[in-house]
């Protein structure tokens, strides 16, 4: 494939830079005129410099570099996200393969799906009130899982329903056992859909964690945002918003790369096996040469 470097530079760097520049410009003008309470870009930078340039400095629970806050939030997100996938994937599989299950539970899922994280969190606190020190963390994980699993559930179900009859016929003709059928046919066939769900779920998890941190005051990007609002340091609100956006964008891009390469990932075991076989064969050859 031939790459047009100049075109890629224009599309990937120059145009976005111009767009960002324009937004900052309008912002600066607005902060000077129509919206005097909006901190100007320069002020935001001056007040946030410390947090951005020393991203991993710990000065206190709610006074850390932005990198540390991001890390704290990400840790929670990853745990909650893992939980969401762990629950969501099998649920999606059952939903996709059983009409009865769909008829029974689809209405409930449709009702639970639009419930806001702000509504789940208090329930989580009640449910895990026995856990004393961990109550808020467990409640947070519960909330992330309850909110973020739906795209995984629904996309997995769609993926399972979309498996071509041809593949299922292969399973029937070969009389594959249910486990083999699941792991050799159903999962690989539904995987592209599953990963679309996984990507959307990750985005949702990130949305949810910020809301929960604001509600609970847990240290993290959202917690920091709320605290700075309470302390009247408004430029930091913008810093947090930008951080949340950038991290969300990066997560989405990462998942897109994974999603686009699902087939290669699937082939990874085969590739490794092939590679090992080649190395092994060569070694055997060398040994036989040495013997002769």
């Amino acid at each position: 494939m031939k790459y047009d470097v100049k075109k890629m530079m224009m599309n990937g760097l120059v145009f976005p830079a111009v767009g960002i520049g324009a937004v900052i410009g309008i912002w600066a003008i607005l902060s000077q005129s129509a919206a005097p309470d909006l901190p100007s870009p320069l002020r935001i930078w001056q007040e946030s410099k410390l947090y951005v340039l020393e991203p991993f400095t710990y000065r206190g629970e709610l006074d850390q570099g932005i990198g540390l806050f991001t890390w704290l939030s990400l840790k929670m997100v990853l745990k909650g996200y893992a939980l969401a996938l762990l629950i969501g994937t099998p649920t999606g599989f059952i939903l996709g393969s059983s009409k009865l299950f769909t008829k029974m539970f689809d209405p409930i899922f449709q009702i639970l799906r639009p419930v806001s994280p702000l509504a789940w969190y208090p329930l989580g606190l009640v449910l895990f009130s026995q856990a004393r020190n961990n109550t808020s963390e467990l409640a947070a994980l519960f909330t992330i899982a309850m909110c973020a699993m739906w795209p995984t559930v629904i996309n997995t179900a769609v993926g399972v329903r979309a498996i071509p009859q041809d593949y299922l016929n292969v399973a029937r003709v070969l009389k594959l056992s249910p486990t083999k059928r699941l792991f050799k046919i159903l999962v690989p066939a539904a995987l592209p859909y599953m990963f679309t769900g996984y990507r959307l779920s990750l985005g949702l998890s990130w949305l949810v964690i910020v809301a929960i941190e604001m509600l609970s005051g847990r240290p993290g990007v959202g917690g920091f945002l709320w605290q700075e609002y309470s302390s009247l340091i408004y430029p930091h609100i913008i810093l947090c918003i930008i951080t949340i956006g950038v991290v969300g964008f990066v997560l989405d891009r990462l998942m897109s790369v994974v999603e686009a390469n699902v087939n290669h990932i699937l082939n990874l075991p085969a590739l490794i096996q092939r590679g090992l076989a080649a190395i092994f064969a060569r070694r055997q050859l060398e040994v036989s040469h040495a013997v002769s």
């Binding site: 041809d166 593949y167 016929n169 050799k184 066939a189 699937l266 085969a270």
Partner: peptide
């Protein structure tokens, strides 16, 4: 069975 479409599993 040899199907009309080869019906190979594309991930293998």
């Amino acid at each position: 069975v040899v199907f009309q479409a080869p019906c190979l599993l594309p991930w293998m």
